[in-house]
Every structure is written in structure tokens, then in C-alpha cells.
Design a protein around this nucleic acid. Sequence first.
DNA 1: CTCCAGGAACTCC
DNA 2: GGAGTTCATGGA
Length: 297
Amino acid sequence: MSKFFENIKTEYEGELPFVRVRYEGAYNLDKTLDCGQCFRWEKVNDEWLGVALGRLISIKQIDNELIIYNATKEDFENIWCHYFALDEDYDKIDIELLENCQNPTFVQALEQGKGIRILHQDSWEAVCSFIISQNNNIPRIKKIIDALSFALGKQIDASAMENHGARGREFYSFPTPDAILSAGEDFIFSLKTGFRAKYIMDASQKWCDGTINEEELKQIETLDEALAYLCRVKGIGLKVASCALLFGFERYDPFPIDVWMKRVLDKYFEKDFNPSTFGKYAGIAQQYLFDFERNNA
DNA sequence: CTCCAGGAACTCC
DNA sequence: GGAGTTCATGGA
């Protein structure tokens, strides 16, 4: 925990607990929650409302302050500080990236994308979400994830959040692998998952029977081994595995290459450019470039 | 109508 | 070990 966050206290709006956090350096909440790494955040007026790690919160940014509703000081310290990557020194990371790569487009992408953070999402949710993402577009990925959660997740009490965009709505956690497994492939297919239904089932199966073990995977050191471990699931290839590791397994070295990144690489980089040039924070460089291309194309 | 989306499996040679 | 095809779905 950064020393900077020592003075946080729980405040209340009626019954609703919230915290205010002043942060150091650059933080861009809008870009962070809208750069394609997560699919369950929705902007309601000036607040982002969403379910993550089984909880419903909303978060907004005002100048150098973040306000998180439906969260106590303990929630912030134990959960949200890390989830939102507020415990990470991005100034240091950016400097290292710029030392490793002076490509002019990358320099521009970093300048433009400053404040984007890689979230630390739930491992299973990341795996499942990026299986769904294949050959799909972001609005439809979100729809499918919502449908999955609505059908098979646990309902979350939203009564305290009525004044923060939750009035008259229902919220559900992301379903566990066993909930998906017991629902069966036909049911998963009926949620418009298409050819991905059998992939989601295989992942759920391997999670439940222990073929894939999150803790074991998190202890693998080399990127290639970790990628190969995840690729044992039918429907997980290099790209999905890279996204899952980057967004859900506490790694910054994966460099997912999708259709957008292919365009970036051949438009602005030399032919035989190797993303490992970026070093151990390659995944963060990738996110700057992804956001840059998506907003400038 | 065709083309495409944060791809991967499968089928050829 | 590449190159081409197929896989559901929905929006442009």
C-alpha cells in the first residue's frame, strides 16, 4: 500500500459508504475503463457503474481525486486499490518503456494514452471474456457477458446504489465455472455465444476438474510456459491467452496481437520489429498502442 | 448484398 | 509449417 493512501477514511452518503482517494501522477479513468480490457463498466452520467470481483460499485474522477461509492476504507485497501492499479508506479513504467523503444508512433501513443492503467481483473472472468471476444466486436461481447451473468451469476443487492444509476435495475456477478458447467452447452449456446459455446464449456470443465489451476498458473515464470498452459483449453490460442494473462493474471509481459495491433505494427514499425523490445512491461505498451489506433482510425 | 469484429480449429498441401 | 476455409451473430 502506498504511503500516499494512509489518510483514507470511510464517509457516508446516507447509508452508502464511499471513499475519496487522492492519487499521484497520471490517471485516466475514462480511458482505463473504455480501452477494451474490461466489459462490465458502464458510464452513467459522470460515474462508471459496474460489477467486478462480485461487488457493485461506482467510481468517478474529479481532478486529482477518485471517489468510489459502495466501498469502505477496508474495501479500498484490500480490493480496489489493486484492482484499479493505484498501487503501481506508472511514471517509472513509462520511463522504462521509453528507454526501450523510441519509435515515434509509440512515443505519441504513450503521450496520448498517459493515465491508462491495466486493471487487475478476476482470472476466470478474464479468461472467459476473452474466449467470447474472439472474432467478435466489443458491444456484442458486452451483451453476451451480461446475458451470461444475468442467467447464471448471483444477484447483488443494489438498493444502496439507487442514486448512482442502479434504480430499477438488477445486477449479477460473473458466473463461476461450475455454474456454467451445470447449465450445459445448449444453454450457453442459446445466449448467442455461437461457435464459442463449446470453448466456454471446455474452459469451465478444465477449471472444475483441476486441469487448469489458477494458483499453479500464477506461479509459472516464463511467458511461453504460461501461454502454453492456458492454450490447453480448446478455443484459447495465443491472442486470447495473452489477453487473459495480461488482464487477469498479474502479468505485464504478454503482448496480445489482434487485428488492430497487426495494423499498428505494420503501419508504424519496421518489418521485423519484435514486441519483446519493450521489455517486461510490453503489455502496457501494447495497451497504449491499441488505444491510439482505435481512437485515430 | 457483402464485409467485418480484441481468433482459433481444421483441412489441405 | 504455412495458406485458405469455416465457425454464429449482428451491425454497418
